[in-house]
Design a protein around this nucleic acid. Structure first.
Lengths: 402, 402
DNA sequence: ACCCTGAGTAGGAAAGTTTCCGACCTACTC
DNA sequence: GAGTAGGTCGGAAACTTTCCTACTCAGGGT
């Protein structure tokens, strides 16, 4: 019949207040009751009641005492680290990485292995084996994990299950989720790898307080992770950020502007013999090799070109350079800025280096998994009010409205 | 100190419930109490109490009785049409249009006049004079209007006051708002004209239930109104959607891809003598003129090019063709689709014609003004809970967090 | 053809329950 | 001794349930 209008009995108020207490404790770290009282504006009595309830439901913990002030020692409360666990997976072109984190985001275990490139079943087995291993090392059963998020180099549908255009996955990723889901009991969510890198940037990097930014993932291909209003923007069918195919004067339509293949091509064009990897090319450029530097500059120019196009459409506050190639910020950043300033459109554009040098995709996946697992635990503990206290609104609800 | 976590005393619950009742009444039109009770899930008593309060504060009205069922006649309730008024203004290149609407969105008065093109003061005077006239004809004082929204062909900052890159305004729009604000008592908000056309499309056109869409405004210039998650996306400094400057193979960087000037240029290139207006060109094309048709096709190709680029960045569900030139959907739509299908990127792209043929900018401005005026009235009447029941989340808060 | 009765609905009032808050009290530490 | 943490109790606010009255239509009896 009608939609939900958030109206209800007094119980709703209790839920809301419990949620508020939870949010304060989550954000401000271990906190004494008086501080929670001040931060929420609730009365002492109500805070005490809410905490009793939250502790009984195992989402809040006592974490020592605070003797800093005079008077009796204040009990400190925190989110119970073991109230929810998340499993992050990064299925890369070469390796599979897995991490298990607790509710605080602490990494309890991490493991990786080479990625089977041809055999979908073997890939799925690798994932589940690593997951079991990590769960074991974390001292929990796999069943205790509340959510898994799997990063893949592909376009992922809004349902978090469908894979499209997966170049680096066996059989185009067909059946991958189902195969993994058969062996892992918790809810599964797929996500584009660059999107997860953007999440990592937002949570651990330089974009903590930036509402709108774009992570340019320069690696095997070129992709953009777009965060608008503090939330990932995936597009209608998960295809947002496929900026590798943006038109470029020197490139045919329908081909990628930039990526490992393009860089190799430009290396040949610059007269570089052999087939040096991008990594080696950047190394040589660092050594002063003129030809390698020319390739670096061409790469920077194309990055700038793509950033300018994106800026004209959504004008983010900030661009972040990420990905395996983008990690060479020492060489790229200045040149990208130079080209942006040169043929600048109507708007000034800020570009910075990634603040998450290692494991960005994995860390983003783990963060997202933890987030969902926690939300579920919190909702169950407080009576499921749809409130959500992230900076800049509700983050990341992979809303499948169907 | 801390942020707001939406926690509070029982009074909060009353606010929330009043707000829910208001939202139901707003969405479902005139409604009897029993239906409100069902839709909100609240008890009869509470609904009665809320309605008493809302009526006392003049935001809700009795609107006749319902004798359809047997039993005693049920009183019907609705949003009081006179609880808030909005003033919409469209400052175009040639004419200024103004409309006054009531809380239901009904247009109470509309007026227009030629736009003074050189004199900023005269332009401001035109606006205020038309506003006074409309308010008079609507039977209210200008002071009764709760919000004005002014559409301008320019980039508008997030504060809704600053104007940048206003080609069609005297003195680049400098001082325009202040001059108008001196004579109009209500809060003023500027907005980009294409953005307002997008709002109109969302509210009156074909995009009522589409969360993510892009309105391509093809007129004197080319701009995009971007709606993501049901909300306008303005960009960091209001510059989102400046897609007229997207790179195009046949165009130099920093120049516009499309617009009246480009079309004239292409007409010359096609060997058309004289300087026919775009309108005339499309007329001739309709008559079968080969050269004019060539120009139309070239225009369509460029529109397709821009749409494809936008789709690669944000992948909206839908593109809508609007603006004075875009209104020639009979000629353009098929050709745009053709070109999109031809050099399609990885994603299928839907394009439709605008569903708001007339006064799109004005209607969008009026809608937005009404929206803000109403929100303010509702907040005052219910005790200002930050809830907001639009389809797909909170719409259009011009959040100036400063 | 007219009237009476029963069922279903709208609206209101009283009693009961849940929840929050303020005030008071105790215990603890500097 | 002063200031703080934590607990308890009575009061106020808000919602719900239950009961009650009044009204209208439908159907059957006279």
């Amino acid at each position: 019949m009608g939609g939900d209008y958030l109206a209800g009995p007094q119980g709703l108020l209790r839920s809301i207040n419990a949620r508020a207490v939870l949010a304060v404790v989550d954000r401000e770290g271990p906190l004494g009751r008086p501080e929670i009282t001040r931060a929420t504006g609730l009365s002492k009595t109500t805070v005490a009641q809410a905490l009793r309830e939250l502790i009984a439901r195992d989402v809040v913990d006592e974490a020592g005492i605070d003797t800093a002030r005079r008077g009796p020692a204040a009990t400190l409360y925190r989110i119970a680290p073991r109230c929810a666990f998340g499993l992050g997976v990064d299925i890369g072109h070469l390796r599979v990485r897995v991490a298990v984190v607790d509710a605080t985001g602490e990494v309890l275990a991490r493991a990786e292995a080479p990625a089977p490139r041809r055999d979908a079943a073997a890939l799925a087995d690798t994932v589940t084996a690593l997951a079991s291993e990590c769960a074991g090392r974390a001292g929990i059963g796999v069943a205790a994990v509340g959510q898994a998020v799997i990063g893949v180099p592909a376009i992922v549908g809004r349902d978090g299950r469908t894979i499209r255009r997966a170049y680096g996955l066996p059989r185009g990723g067909k059946g991958l989720v189902d195969a993994i889901a058969r062996d892992l009991p918790m809810p599964l969510l797929l996500e584009n790898d660059v999107n997860l890198a953007a999440v990592a940037e937002q949570r651990f990097g330089a974009c903590a307080d930036v509402g709108d930014f774009v992570l340019l993932g320069v690696g095997v291909g070129l992709g953009a992770g777009i965060v608008l209003g503090g939330r990932l923007h995936r597009g209608f069918a998960g295809g947002a950020g496929e900026v590798g195919f943006l038109p470029h004067p020197a490139t045919e339509l329908g081909t990628e502007v930039l990526g490992a293949r393009r860089i190799a091509e430009q290396a040949r064009a610059a007269g570089i013999a052999g087939r040096p990897s991008p990594r080696e090319l950047f190394e040589r450029a660092r050594g002063g090799d003129e030809k390698a530097l020319a390739v670096v500059d061409a790469t920077a120019r194309r990055i700038a070109h793509v950033a300018a196009s994106i800026a004209l459409v959504i004008e983010p506050e900030l661009f972040v350079l990420g990905g395996a190639v983008g990690a060479n910020a020492d060489l790229l950043l200045g040149r990208v800025r130079h080209h942006l300033a040169k043929d600048a459109g109507p708007l000034p554009i800020r570009v910075i280096a990634s603040g998450v040098p290692d494991d960005a995709v994995l860390r983003g996946a783990a963060w997202l998994a933890r987030h969902h697992a926690r939300e579920r635990a919190f909702a169950a503990a407080t009576g499921a009010p749809p409130q959500d206290a992230g900076p800049g609104g509700r983050p990341y609800d992979t809303d499948s409205a169907g």
